[in-house]
Amino acid sequence: MKIIIFGGTGFIGLNLAEVLLARDHDVTLYDCAPLPPAAQRSLPNYRERLKVVQGDITDAEGIEGLIAGGYDAIVLGAAITAGEELERASTARVLEINVMAQIPILLAAIRHRVRRVVNLSSASAYGASGTRFDVLDEETPCDPVSFYAVSKFTSERSVARHAELFGGDFLSVRLSAVFGPWERPGAVRDTPSLQFQILAAFARGEPAILPDAGVKDWTYAPDAAEAVAKLIEAERPRHRIYNISSGTAWSALQWGEAFAALHRGLQCRLAAPGEKTEIKLHGGDRAPMSVARMADEFGWRARLGCAESAAAMSAWWMQHKETI
């Protein structure tokens, strides 16, 4: 398949690109940022099937010309992942990029007969419902609160309505607490995972001191990418929205301890009373997401839990410390 990933040189985009290239697809990464040097070194074997296009997600004319070149699938992954600081500073921009910029892409996909569009949404779409239910499945009512959450939920409804109006084969996925390779904060992402912050402390030669254990249904990025790849390749998905999560809650503290145990001299612990830490929590507690729909329909479940993902990330970290 020929697949274009908008937001392709970002965190999720690069993980998805690696998975799709390994599955013999041709991949175009569209992003305002260039391919990071470390990724250029990691992907040399795929040069003939990997294309990088730098451009603005709001350049409707340029994107129209690109899609007209013929694609089988589009992944809508360009987004401003905003915490409260970025939300205050760029409220209109969050909605512009996360919702409005998708509309010309969806219409171009319809005009040029793109077979499948997958919109990368977020568990944040559940919003306040995350504290009212024990488990969140795709039928759980959403009650988004932050502008980021509102934008992701709105993007889901926009994608679904375009499909209803024009007959497009469009779907959305809600990603839960993703961490792993290629994660990096930036101007459009100010909510790094606890795992990223733990590794950043280790890279500085400091202990990773957490303000809280950080219990979530953490999901290793390559596992999430495998799930998205299955949805891209699926002949006829039965639903228009899917949860992607490890399905099991465990703590970032536990993960950091498992990672530290693999490297002499590293330490991950909770802050003592009154002790300051640079590591920040992003987002409140919520129930874990059910992955029964992905498991029942596609046989997918996350392969790497806490200890397994710590070991996998350790191997990756040893090769890419300079990216943290």
Rank of each mutant, 00 (worst) to 15 (best):
T140I: 02
A22P: 06
N15P: 03
T219E: 03
Q197D: 07
R23K: 14
I279K: 11
L21E: 13
D134Q: 08
A208D: 13
N45S: 14
E96A: 14
P211R: 06
P192H: 03
P273N: 06
N98P: 08
V118H: 00
P222R: 05
S121L: 00
G265M: 11
G186E: 02
K321Y: 02
E226G: 05
E61Y: 02
S314A: 14
E64H: 00
D26T: 11
R47N: 10
S129F: 07
E297L: 10
D56F: 06
G284S: 13
I103D: 01
F259L: 11
L29T: 13
V159R: 05
G55I: 04
E18W: 10
R132I: 02
A249Y: 02
V215L: 11
N98E: 06
A234S: 13
A38K: 07
V19F: 03
M289C: 10
A73S: 15
K321F: 01
W317K: 13
D72Y: 05
T91A: 13
D31P: 09
H112I: 07
L120I: 04
A258I: 00
E96K: 08
G10E: 03
L76W: 07
Y242E: 12
E233D: 15
P192D: 03
G168T: 10
V27K: 10
M318S: 15
F179R: 06
L194N: 08
V99H: 06
G299K: 09
R303V: 12
H162Q: 10
E85S: 03
N98D: 12
I324C: 14
A101H: 02
G10T: 02
V215G: 00
A108H: 00
E235D: 15
K321R: 15
I241T: 15
E164W: 04
W218Y: 11
S90K: 05
E138T: 12
V114L: 03
K216G: 02
I198K: 03
A82N: 00
P273I: 08
N243D: 12
S90G: 00
E156P: 07
G7M: 02
E139D: 09
L16Q: 06
K230R: 13
A82S: 00
E297F: 09
A73L: 05
S151N: 02
P273D: 04
L76F: 07
V135W: 11
L194S: 08
E257N: 01
I110R: 00
N98R: 05
G205C: 09
R115L: 11
R238L: 14
A201Q: 14
S245L: 07
R116G: 08
